[in-house]
Amino acid sequence: MVERISIQGTRSSPEVDCDPATKTLRLEGESYPENTFDFYKPLVAWLEDVLAENDGGSDPVTLDVALAYLNTGSIKSLMDMLDRMDEAHEAGTAVAVVWRCDAENERVVELAEELLEDLSLPYEIKTE
């Protein structure tokens, strides 16, 4: 059984909730933590575990992103998560990506489009 990961947000790191009950990985806030890869490594591993467990299930494994700013280490980590989800999607696993952006934060909207445009998985960019 995959365990839940909850991390409080700080000025430079997002609030994280990886909930196995809803199969949802949620990131919200700012993302430029020190040692960015160390921060994201357990989250990427969590996602891999949930995708592996979910093989064949009908409820989607969901990545729910609401980040105001991402440094390049965070962008790379997010791309790794999206690649894992895309591979799972192509292998028949139900996945969903929701990316919430502040409509005035043009750069994040552009980033979301750039990361998602080459993938085959279903996604939604919501500007609020």
Partner: peptide, 22 residues
């Protein structure tokens, strides 16, 4: 930039090698 994004992170690297490109 997109090519770097797809490459695996090198062992022990602290950055994605994307900073200057960005």
């Amino acid at each position: 930039y997109k090519e770097r994004l797809k490459n695996p992170i090198e062992d022990g690297a602290m950055g994605a090698g994307l900073g200057f490109l960005q």
